[in-house]
Nucleic acid binder design. Structure first.
Length: 723
DNA sequence: GAGCACTGC
């Protein structure tokens, strides 16, 4: 789908630039959305909230912000913000639009994602991840103002702009793209944006009034809401802020849900550009869909014309066994029919191996991509003409009763099936083979259950509490999570000490936890560790726990990988093992030139990871998180110290913050989960596998002392943990 | 002696 652009890099000749500009213009005009530019701009002028339903290939993400810029929505320094669920999308789209505008990235057009911000004061079209905007919106204004007064270093803080700007007054328009994906970030963000929108049309008047006439009450208010006032005073007091325009962009027909949520907001439809895809169902139910998939792959290979195949499977295991099955079946074919290669892609696959799916197949060969649902949205593979869809997906679910999350293989939804089949029609007409009966399709749910209804809500609840939302159950969610899930999170946050007995944000613990971009349990661990002089160790641990598995064990080199891992193993457990790995990577770098550019450092680390059987993507990510969180905790004034060889305090802090995940050794030698009493085992990949670590309970422990855990007495003296 | 879909701050 990449438009035929010419890179500007070293093309100095004006002729080439003019040529490129003409091609860009031609491409832009050919997009379906180009024909409705005036109408869309008009609708945005007329409506404060607009829903745009546009299928893939309409050009909505790249073109709409440019139309609005042209129509004058960025006058007086105003910014158009566009959110994306994924980092890659924010980056690639921003680069493309900058090119279309003929400006350097970071000038008129820029992107802002965690660890990477290319925007400047002159940026008018700003692409960002929805998670980042959510963070920005939800940081508490008054708190921030107080800390800024206390700590002048905070002036350099990344999100200062928003800390000072609760009404997002720099933005004229916020476009929430891919809203149909309904990520937890999108859902919460919509709720907050809705209230910001209301605040812009009501509260500002309030503050405007009160800036002009100072009554006694107003003086009091001013004291409480210092931030907003100071901010407001900077504005021209007689001028009202224009309303915040919201545009929700969605690919499927979920417009009704959004429209209803935004009080009947208008929805407009823009045609996409897709090729027809013929849908085929099986006639007889086939319970073994892997077998059916392999058979279908071969049928396509032998019976159809050229074109690559994309198969949707549920996970790494299925992908690997399908690969073997296909190879076996190919051997039974005559040699000239074996020109078929299989390529796996899933997120934990090292990136250099992922890249292979994008390369064209060798001449005369057909490519078969075996993918998880990474290929549904995150990755678009060119050349796909045939899609095989067994109709299953591995999805996360959450049981509020036990507080446990699990991954289960479940049937997909109708909209997911549609999304999958669409992958066959991106470059020309295609075919989709659904390995289930047509009647089964009609039994599928309409759309996938939004993430907010199937995961742990602790973080969301904490953010909302920090924003001053008293009653979470009454919060205006687009779709309400179950009451029990909310109650469970409140309970967890209370046990972690983030909420008081009245379920109000505690100070300073809850407030500090809400400011850290981490799972609340990790935030708590850091705060606790700062008290017990082992924050250095805890910070490494939290960074390493926040990423995918560090150790990489390829199937064919299990023994070698295990030997490499032994070198870092700590008999005290997995957390200390992770610390060993992190510190080893530091020592490796210190031996080299410490002043190298980040790119060089990353390159060296990748090599080091390969030698030591580690996933370099994970380690580099953990190092990024480490420095990001370090900045945060330094700004919060937490005390970073190391416990050195005395790891007891550190392990106590672990126990005191991860107590929700604690299992106790029983008399018979088994372990039981502290919460539900479920029997659990030490995983074979753990450093402690094969050992029987002890946990000695304080003598006075009894069931009704659960609350003691909440007050974190655990960390002080009574526990002796070997983990 | 075995697992872990996909994102994001």
């Amino acid at each position: 789908m990449a438009p035929p652009y010419i890179r500007r890099c070293d093309a100095k000749s004006r002729k080439v630039d003019a040529f490129a500009a003409r091609r860009i213009e031609k491409h832009r005009k050919s997009l379906p959305i180009a024909s409705v530019e005036e109408r869309l701009v008009e609708e945005v002028r007329k409506n404060d909230t607009l829903i745009i339903v546009a299928e893939t290939g309409s050009g909505k993400t790249t073109q709409l912000p440019q139309f609005l810029f042209k129509a004058g929505f960025c006058r007086e320094g105003k910014v158009i913000g566009v959110t994306q669920p994924r980092r890659v999308a924010a980056v690639t789209v921003a680069k493309r639009v900058a090119e279309e505008c003929g400006s350097d990235l970071g000038q008129k057009v820029g992107y802002s994602i965690r660890f990477d911000d290319t925007t400047s004061d002159s940026t008018r079209i700003k692409y960002m991840t929805d998670g980042l905007l959510l963070r920005v919106v939800s940081l508490r204004v008054v708190d921030a103002m107080v800390s800024i007064v206390k700590d002048p270093r905070l002036v350099g803080l990344r999100h200062l702009e928003a800390l000072l700007d609760p009404y997002l007054s720099r933005y004229s328009i916020i476009i929430v793209d891919e809203a149909h994906e309904r990520t937890i970030h999108t859902d919460v963000l919509l709720g907050l944006l809705k209230s910001v929108q209301m605040a812009r049309s009501t509260s500002l008047n309030h503050y405007q009034n009160f800036a002009n006439k100072k009554t006694k009450d107003n003086m009091l208010l001013e004291k409480e809401n210092g931030a907003q006032c100071i901010n407001f005073r900077k504005q021209d007091q007689r001028r009202k802020l224009p309303p915040l325009k919201l545009i929700i962009m969605s690919a499927s027909m979920d417009a009704g849900v959004f429209s209803k949520y935004f009080e009947g907001a208008k929805a407009v439809r823009v045609e996409g550009r897709r090729f027809p895809v013929q849908i085929l169902y099986i006639c007889l139910d086939e319970p073994n869909y892997l077998d059916a998939a392999v058979t279908t792959i071969l049928q396509i290979h032998l019976g159809e014309g050229p074109g690559d195949v994309l198969v949707f499977l549920t996970g790494k295991d299925e992908i690997e066994s399908t690969e073997i099955l296909v190879k076996e079946r190919l051997q039974q074919l005559p040699e000239n029919s074996r020109k078929l290669i299989t390529l796996p892609i899933f997120s934990s696959l090292p990136s250099e191996k992922q890249m292979r799916v994008f390369a064209p197949a060798p001449a005369g060969f057909r490519k078969v991509i075996l993918a998880t649902n990474i290929a549904e949205t995150s990755v678009t593979i060119p050349g796909i003409k045939f899609v095989i869809d067994p109709g299953f997906v591995k999805a996360r679910s959450y049981d509020p009763r036990t507080g446990l999350e699990s991954l289960d293989v479940v049937p997909i939804s109708k909209s997911q099936a549609l999304q999958r089949s669409g992958r066959a029609g991106r470059e020309g007409p295609g075919k989709c083979y659904r390995l289930y009966l047509e009647s089964k399709f009609w039994e599928f749910d309409e759309s996938t259950t939004p993430e907010i209804k199937r995961c742990n809500l602790s973080n969301v609840v904490l953010q909302l509490k920090a924003l001053g939302v008293e009653d979470i159950v009454e919060f205006d969610f687009i779709e309400k999570p179950s009451r029990s899930a909310i109650v469970k999170s409140l309970e967890q946050l209370f046990l972690l000490g983030a909420l008081t007995g009245e379920y109000k944000l505690s100070d300073p613990v809850g407030r500090q936890m809400s400011q850290l971009p981490l799972d609340p349990i990790y935030s708590k661990a850091l705060i606790l560790a700062s008290e017990f002089n082992c924050l250095e160790e805890m910070l490494i641990t939290v960074a390493m726990l926040s990423v995918e598995s560090i150790f990489y064990v390829p199937r064919e080199r299990v023994e070698e990988a295990r030997a490499a891992m032994k070198f870092f193993l700590s008999p005290q457990g997995d957390h200390l093992t992770l610390i060993n790995v992190y510190r080893a990577s530091n020592e490796f770098l210190e031996k080299k030139n410490p002043d190298l550019a980040k790119e060089k450092v990353d390159k060296m680390l990748r090599k080091w990871c390969k030698q030591n059987f580690m996933n370099s993507r994970s380690l580099l990510h953990a190092r990024d998180i480490h420095s990001h969180i370090l900045r945060h905790i330094e700004q919060m004034g937490l005390h970073v110290a190391s416990c050195g060889d005395d790891t007891l305090q550190f392990r106590r802090c672990l126990a005191a913050s991860f107590f929700l995940n604690v299992a106790l050794k029983q008399r018979d030698g088994t372990y039981r989960d502290l919460k539900g009493g479920q029997v659990v085992q030490i995983h074979p990949s753990s450093a402690l596998f094969g050992t029987k670590p002890e946990v000695e309970l304080p003598r006075e422990y009894s069931c009704d002392q659960d609350l003691v855990l909440g007050e974190n007495k655990l960390g002080s003296a009574n526990w002796h943990l070997s983990c």
